[in-house]
């Protein structure tokens, strides 16, 4: 139900952009997806397709089904179909590089969508993951927790995003840490971002510190559910602020209930829309560094400087819970389940 609403709203939004780029009709925008196993990519695709088709261009796509080899073959076939722009969600950001070179050689524009590959000719479009970490830190400080024992529940050690996030978090908290006000009570990676793993880590962290934990920085909402379960068992849920990201429905409900401080929300529809607009502009012949919102980014693994569009995510707290409800991301009933009347403005 809400999907149709969001599709409609994206379509309406894209009508305006369509007017700007009306002369780009008849171009072909291709997307090479790494997998459709995860629900979210379908949301992205709907947003991209809507913008591209509203601009009078053609959308085609391939699904690499989680295989680097298949993705290379997919891209070969897209090149031979003489498309104008290829957006790539890389399955493997190193193995993809020869394919990107082939795209460049064929005179086609390449966009790295959400997953970075380091090619100076390509445009990189993603949410600013370091920025998500910064927002977690900032929201925590803004809530009044500027000192005390902090627990850091990080994501999987093999996922570069876990490190990007932590980089942003420490960047914000560093002055307080250096001043000796914030103490790192526990800091640990969590295999596979697993919530039950995070729960055990939090239980042991509370035991080791005799419950003297003042704040928990959890790097996503799934792990935050484990953290909150561990806090609940000690009667501390709601008293110790917990961060998260992804805008999980269960997490937004916890935000309303007060057991989670913030869920940093990355609206993949916004990402899809911006990427599609950039693709349409590139197909139309706009120079890569002239695309709206482009900045330089050189923070990847090999520090290659690329043109990039970094979207700012939205920290959802009790105060702006209404944003996600209005955007149709979650219904009011889902967000406000079990909330006492009159405690949260968005639930009135």
């Amino acid at each position: 139900m809400f999907k149709t609403i969001l599709l409609a709203s994206v379509a309406v939004a894209s009508l305006f952009t369509a007017a700007d780029s009306a002369f780009a009709k008849g171009k072909t925008i291709a997307v090479s997806w790494k997998t459709f196993q995860e629900e979210r990519w379908k949301t992205d695709e709907a947003a991209i397709k809507a913008v591209v088709e509203a601009a009078g261009d053609k959308y085609i796509s391939t699904d690499a089904q989680g295989s680097a080899q298949k993705q290379a073959a997919d891209i070969d076939s897209l090149i031979s179909q003489k498309v104008d722009v290829i957006m790539v969600v890389a399955f493997d950001s190193d193995a993809i590089l020869p394919s990107i070179k082939a795209i460049n050689d064929a005179g086609i524009k390449a966009i790295a969508y959400d997953v970075q590959f380091e090619d100076p000719n390509a445009l990189y479009i993603t949410f600013d993951n370091v920025g998500v970490g910064r927002l977690m830190g900032k929201t925590m400080l803004a809530s009044g927790k500027k000192a005390g024992n902090f627990a850091f529940i990080k994501g999987d050690k093999g996922d570069p995003n876990a490190t990007f996030l932590f980089q942003g978090i420490t960047e914000v908290l560093k002055p307080q840490m250096d001043a000796g006000k914030i103490k790192v009570a526990c800091e640990t990676f969590t295999d596979g971002w697993k919530p039950d793993g995070a729960q055990k880590e939090m239980e042991q962290c509370l035991t080791a510190n005799n419950n003297k934990i003042d704040a928990v920085i959890s790097e996503n909402d799934g792990m935050a559910s484990g953290v909150v379960a561990a806090l609940t068992a000690q009667g501390l849920a709601g008293q110790v602020p917990v961060t998260g990201q992804d805008g999980d429905k269960a997490a937004l409900n916890r935000v309303a209930l007060g057991t989670q401080l913030v869920s940093v929300w990355k609206d993949s529809r916004a990402l899809g829309k911006v990427a599609a607009e950039a693709a349409v502009a590139l197909a139309d012949g706009t120079k890569i560094d002239k695309v709206k919102g482009v900045t330089k980014f050189a923070n990847g693994k090999n520090k290659v400087e690329m043109n990039a569009i970094l979207l700012t995510p939205d920290p959802i707290t009790k105060a702006n819970l209404d944003d996600v409800i209005k955007a149709g991301w979650i219904t009011k009933a889902e967000a406000c389940a079990g909330v006492k009347a009159g405690t949260v403005a968005a639930c009135k």
Partner: peptide, 16 residues
């Protein structure tokens, strides 16, 4: 036991 303990269920619960 696992889902009651977490008070939630996800496809990540129990993996490996």
């Amino acid at each position: 036991i696992a889902s009651a303990r977490l008070d939630a269920a996800t496809n990540a619960l129990g993996q490996s």
